[in-house]
Amino acid sequence: MDKNVAQSKRERYLTFHIGSEQYGIAIDRIKEIIAMMSITKVPNIPAYMRGVINLRGSIIPVVDTRLRFGMEYRESDMHTAIIIVEVEKISIGFIVDRVEEVSSIESSSLSEPPKFGSSIDTDFICAVAQIEEEVVMILDVLKLFEADELVGIEQIEQTQTQGE
């Protein structure tokens, strides 16, 4: 068996769009994908935290991924979805413009994310993949949040659960 073949591993990623950009998240991080639903606002949270949803009795904080990435707010439409991801044992919903598909990507076709200098935060992009003509930025969901933000999300979750 060719050693190079053994070295290359296929990983599965859910790909989705935010604006005109395509992103991916490792499939093993994703709990489920749901249609956009009513979000309960929570006072005194960052603008990109849209609030919480009640998903079959679980209170899940929801992040507007567009706002987290510094893009402008967009009304949801029939393609808007919430991707439920588990980060440090906390479920978080990410609002995305459109879910694309599950893609198998050879680890050999992943490359380092581009460096734009210290003033631009690209830490949450862990790799870049080329799928046909598209460039897909693979997100590190853990790095989308600072440690204190995760603590804040956990507190939002607990507060909402206790309030029921």
Rank of each mutant, 00 (worst) to 15 (best):
D2C: 08
D2I: 03
N4T: 11
N4F: 11
N4L: 06
V5L: 04
V5W: 07
A6K: 15
A6V: 11
Q7T: 10
Q7I: 05
Q7G: 08
Q7W: 08
Q7R: 11
K9R: 15
R10C: 09
E11W: 12
L14C: 04
T15I: 03
H17Y: 14
S20A: 12
Q22T: 14
Y23R: 08
A26Q: 00
I27S: 15
I33V: 14
I33M: 05
I33P: 07
A35G: 09
S38T: 13
K41T: 08
N44E: 09
N44Q: 11
I45G: 02
A47Y: 06
A47R: 13
Y48E: 08
M49K: 07
M49N: 12
R50P: 00
V52T: 02
V52G: 01
N54D: 10
L55D: 00
R56I: 01
G57L: 00
V62C: 02
V63Q: 05
V63R: 03
D64K: 08
R66D: 10
L67I: 06
F69V: 01
F69T: 00
E72F: 13
R74C: 06
E75P: 02
S76P: 14
D77Y: 09
M78H: 13
H79D: 09
T80S: 15
A81Q: 08
A81K: 14
I82E: 07
I82Q: 03
I82D: 01
I83D: 02
V87M: 01
E88K: 10
E88F: 00
E88A: 02
I90T: 05
S91T: 09
S91L: 09
I92L: 12
F94Y: 09
I95C: 01
I95W: 13
I95P: 01
R98A: 14
V99H: 01
E101T: 15
V102F: 06
S103N: 07
S104W: 09
I105P: 00
S107I: 02
S109V: 03
L110C: 05
S111E: 09
E112F: 04
P113L: 02
P113C: 04
P114I: 12
K115V: 11
K115Y: 15
K115E: 14
F116H: 03
F116L: 01
S118K: 15
S119D: 09
S119L: 12
I120R: 03
I120E: 06
D121L: 02
D123T: 15
F124S: 01
A129P: 01
A129Q: 02
I131N: 03
E133G: 07
E133R: 15
E134H: 14
V135I: 13
V135A: 09
L142A: 01
L142N: 01
L144I: 00
L144R: 02
F145C: 00
A147I: 14
A147M: 05
L150E: 05
L150I: 11
L150K: 10
G152F: 15
I153L: 11
I153T: 10
E154Y: 08
E154P: 00
Q155R: 11
Q155Y: 14
I156Q: 03
I156K: 10
E157Y: 03
E157I: 05
T159W: 11
G163I: 10
G163D: 11
